[in-house]
Design a protein around this nucleic acid. Structure first.
Length: 799
DNA sequence: ATGTAGGTGGTTTTT
DNA sequence: CCACCTACAT
């Protein structure tokens, strides 16, 4: 083997070498969980560059998250720097000092990898659109320019809502904006135009949807804005209609790599096909000289069909990109798992074997058996959270002391995190949550981003409406109504009306002060647009708009938090400028719009809480999965749908295969779904699919010590409500017992009673304080000294 | 024009 | 349970 390429092929197995060595033509890499697919991808890119002298400018690499792109770039830098180290210093990489290493890495990054395009579908193709969107010829004559805004889901939804309310005068209760937005999104993902939808419409509702779609598309164009789907759909339409532009990009991207290919949708597939073959039909394409398409995926980990992903695209790969030369392989399987214990692998294999739609593939463990999989049945979601917390505490007190980042707690729905958080809080265990509210979705951040977006794109009415009266300028509903009316009558953007002093004075009259104030502000800020980067501009916006002084005067805990977040936003912009030489405002806005929770940097030494979806691609020493119950996981929506159920099973498979050493599964026999009624639940079908001999059934957990108390302390309003309940006064014990189903509820305790506590051991009661709902007892334990307990909550029993 | 009380309705999963 | 919306009071 080539001496210089040694570092590229070192420590790879046979199959990985096959993948990395692949040069031209199509190759499908089926990569099981933990089989080193990221390695295969990065090493192959390095091999293209070093061995085959491919200019990174000619490579397009698609990753599933921005974070994956970032990490892959870093690994690539190091790989390439290793060779440079030999050339420049004549010594191996790992003998260089940190400064020299950084020097080399930087030179690779700044010089060699300049032209490499690596990122998510959305970020890569919005980049492409910044170049070419102005050449797109829409059949309805709609246009966009390269300063387009990217609308997120809530922006899109409010646009749809506005159309339903204002333009079509429909009842939003009958025609839910959310559902209509979903239907439009679906159409876009199938490359259907409003006209197509109108033609296909078979009933009134479908006609309404088509009408909304048409107006929505016009509105987007008026606002010079695109939604997430457009970022993929428009490039497809553009590349299909304009062969010159298609030629251009086809010539440029000679080597295309796609990670997580099982989660691509039809539009994304079209894009890959167009760029790879330079024609709408890949069948006719046979010329693989100097070109390649390299996709990596695992059909068993396809979990995004709700987002129109379709793993049959992966299964069809070899047929789609048929290559002529029979001596070339077109399929490599990475089946050796380097991550998990063989117990975990076997459980995962057995589980996924219940699916019917699969590619022949089995994970082969390389590690020892390890611990059995732990299975715990809990009373309810509170004791479940508590059981997990106690488990983490016991692990971390023995052995892996305080390595909180060893642990991940995974769940099906975001709503499940709250109870777990409370339990972790109670025991001062540090954690971070991925998911829920994104940083860029916080109100204050969205406000400032809207300013920035509007400054760049003055057609963006949605952003304008968001900031017009934020902070308060005394511009109310009626004024806004008048303005919008005029804007649609004259077919002008809102800003063109607002920015006309005479119009405002005559139209609005006495309350025009705030609007004039606003237009002055915007004009002042616009003057800075070309002179400053995003960080400085954000700072100017915050100061000049009065947003900051507003936060400072209110001086509540909340406004303090908001202020901190805004500082964090400036930091993020500064960091963006440092990482991107151009540091353009559009670029920063794009990052803001397309960044996801999964991109968040892993914070050091905290327990990770996230949905199973978000855990894809990650690994943890110890994985807890909560809520393995029918109707929760698998989701109730999948119970009567075999395809959906198989996807849930794949999700479960993803969860299992995140664990390196320990996998702990939890289910509760009762669960409060939204604070309200308890519902009894039965264990998930997936639990029954794991071989019994791999499972250690832990003894049933009773209501734990922490959370019930926590509940008592933090949920005072709830307790108050119970106390003011007439039923409580009639029969206090009864009411209490209904809330706290603690094991010792209802027992009358006396001084000198002996008892046993599940974690403190044996003890004797020394004092009793209060009575009824306010009772607590002091217990002197043999081993841990005296403790004050609530006898109705503590896991104690008399002896 | 703005604030707040009370009602309503909603849960998968996300770029 | 909580976020969102509407209706009424200021």
């Amino acid at each position: 083997m080539d001496q210089t390429a040694n570092h590229i092929f070192r420590d790879l197995n046979e199959a990985q070498i096959d993948a990395v060595r692949h040069f031209t033509g199509p190759l499908l890499v089926i990569a099981g969980a933990g089989s080193g697919k990221t390695r295969a991808l990065t090493h192959r890119i390095a091999n293209l560059i070093e061995t085959h002298n491919i200019d990174p400018y000619n490579i397009l690499a698609v990753t599933f998250t921005n974070k994956a792109a970032r990490e892959m770039k870093e690994r690539l830098e190091i790989l390439l720097a290793q060779k440079l180290s030999q050339n420049q210093f004549a010594q191996p990489w790992n003998t260089l000092n940190q400064a020299d290493q950084n020097l080399l890495r930087n030179s690779i990054k700044e010089d060699k990898l300049k032209g490499l395009w690596m990122g998510t579908f959305h970020s890569l193709f919005s980049k492409l659109l910044r170049f070419d969107i102005e050449t797109y010829q829409d059949p309805e004559g709609l246009t966009w320019n390269k300063h387009f805004s990217i609308y997120d889901e809530s922006d899109s939804q409010s646009l749809v809502k506005e159309i339903i309310n204002q333009e079509l005068n429909l009842d939003p209760k009958q025609y839910e904006p959310k559902k209509i937005r979903w239907a439009i999104s679906n159409a876009k993902n199938q490359c259907l135009s409003p006209k197509d939808l109108k033609k296909e419409a078979e009933n009134h509702f479908e006609n309404i949807i088509a009408a909304c779609y048409e107006r929505y598309k016009e509105a987007l164009s008026r606002n010079n804005a695109l939604d997430f789907d457009d970022l993929l759909l428009l490039p497809v339409l553009l590349l299909k209609q304009n062969s010159q532009i298609r030629d251009n990009w086809h010539r440029r991207f000679k080597h295309i790599l796609v990670d997580e290919y099982q989660d691509t949708n039809q539009t994304q597939y079209e894009l890959i096909k167009l760029l790879t073959t330079n024609s709408e039909d890949s069948k006719g394409f046979k010329n693989w000289d100097n070109r390649s398409i390299f996709v990596v995926g695992d059909a068993d980990q396809s979990i995004y069909s709700f987002r129109a992903a379709d793993f049959r695209i992966l299964i069809g790969f070899q047929k789609d990109f048929d290559n002529d030369s029979k001596d070339q392989i077109s399929l490599v399987k990475l089946e050796e798992n380097y991550r998990s214990s063989s117990t975990i692998i076997e459980a995962a294999n057995q589980l996924i074997a219940n699916n019917t739609e699969r590619i022949d593939k089995v994970l082969k463990p390389t590690k020892e058996k390890g611990d059995l999989i732990s299975l715990t049945k809990c009373d309810d979601e509170i004791s479940e959270a508590d059981a997990i917390t106690q488990k983490i505490r016991s692990f971390s007190s023995s052995g892996d002391k305080k390595f909180w980042n060893n642990y991940a707690i995974l769940y099906r729905t975001n709503a499940q995190s709250r109870v777990i958080e409370q339990s972790l809080n109670r025991w001062n265990i540090p954690y971070t949550i991925f998911g829920g509210l994104r940083f860029f979705d916080r109100r204050e951040i969205k406000d400032i981003i809207a300013y920035l977006r509007f400054l760049v794109n003055k057609s963006d009415d949605i952003s304008l409406l968001r900031i017009l009266n934020v902070p308060k300028r005394g511009i109310g509903k009626t004024s806004i109504q008048k303005l919008s009316q005029l804007s649609s009558q004259l077919n002008l953007n809102l800003w063109e009306i607002i920015n006309n002093k005479e119009t405002i004075l005559s139209l609005i009259g006495r309350s025009s002060k705030g609007i004039l104030e606003f237009s002055n502000l915007i004009n002042e800020l616009s003057a800075y647009l070309n002179n400053y980067g995003p960080a400085k501009l954000i700072q100017l916006i915050i100061e000049k708009s009065g947003y900051l002084s507003n936060l400072l005067t209110s001086a509540t805990e909340e406004s303090e938090e908001r202020r901190r977040n805004l500082l964090e936003l400036i930091n993020a912009a500064t960091q963006y400028q440092e990482e991107n030489e151009l540091g353009s405002i559009e670029g920063f806005l794009e990052t803001a719009a397309l960044s996801s929770e999964a991109d968040k940097q892993q914070t050091n030494n905290r327990v990770t809480l996230m949905t199973l979806h978000n855990s894809k691609g990650l690994e943890f020493n110890t994985v807890f999965i909560a809520g393995l119950e029918q109707g929760l996981f698998p989701s109730y929506r999948s119970l009567d749908n075999p395809f959906a159920l198989e996807e849930e099973r794949r999700l479960c498979y993803v969860g299992f295969t995140r664990a390196k050493e320990r996998l702990l599964l939890y289910h509760a026999s009762e669960r409060r779904l939204w604070g309200g009624d308890r519902e009894t639940s039965i264990p998930s079908i997936f639990l029954s699919e794991i071989p019994k001999d791999l499972i250690k059934d832990e003894k049933q957990q009773y209501g734990g010590t922490s959370l019930r108390k926590d509940w008592h302390l933090e949920r005072l309003p709830r307790i108050d409500r119970v106390e003011s309940n007439t039923m409580f006064h009639k029969n206090p014990k009864n009411a209490v017992r209904r809330i706290y189903s603690g094991p010792a509820a209802g027992k009358e305790w006396k001084i000198k009673d002996k008892l046993i506590h599940t974690s403190f051991g044996k003890g004797e009661i020394t004092h009793i304080f209060g009575k009824g709902s306010k009772i607590s007892i002091a217990v002197k334990f043999d081993k841990v000294g005296s403790k004050i307990l609530d006898p109705r909550l503590a896991p104690i029993r008399a002896i």
